[in-house]
Design a protein around this nucleic acid. Sequence first.
DNA 1: TGCCTGATTGCCT
DNA 2: GGCAATCAGGCAA
Length: 211
Amino acid sequence: MSSSTATVKPSTPPQLLPALSSRFYLQPTATVARQLLGKLLLHHSAAGWVGGLIVETEAYLGAADPASHTYRGPTLRNRAMFGPPGTSYVYFTYGMHYCLNAVTQKPGIGEAVLIRALEPTVGLPLMLQRRGLRDPRQLCNGPAKLVQALGVSINQSGDSLSRSELTIRDCGIPVSSATSTRIGITRARQLPLRFFIPSNPHVSRTAPPRA
DNA sequence: TGCCTGATTGCCT
DNA sequence: GGCAATCAGGCAA
């Protein structure tokens, strides 16, 4: 696995890049999680475009995965995760944080990819302002951090990532990837379902905590 | 109805 | 490295 991934910026204006199709999200969830690396997550609001390259993801496998929100079946909270492929699933956790997922598989399956970290490339000043920071490396290196920087709200849970103002686009940047166990979970923590770009300074952490 | 848990973060030592 | 903040959802009684 290569560890020489350069920091790169898409040259095409982000709003002109093609959004990922439903077919992309119908691939196996772990494949989607790996292939989302290097894609561009964008959010458009009245303040303008913000976003960045996805550098870290985790796959959550529904009824087969005890760590997944959908393991016990549909509830009011997780219903967006049972939506069509390419749906956003935003959830509230720890009493104060929001995290963003991209739903995979057919409706009713309940699998998704958690977006854990971005390399911020679009609308950097606005995101720094939202987070009250000056260091871009601290801007999006965690799932709740990137949601705050992008200005995503829980009201956008259930929206299409292909057609709404919250979207994931293909900027055609080839990246290397590495795999590890997932972070911050207590169940099924042995599964190698975390994917990240090695040596990228915006990854939330280089290795998961010890078991 | 009430208790417990949690896909996190940031501050403090 | 440790731990507090903070609260919705899930589950047991």
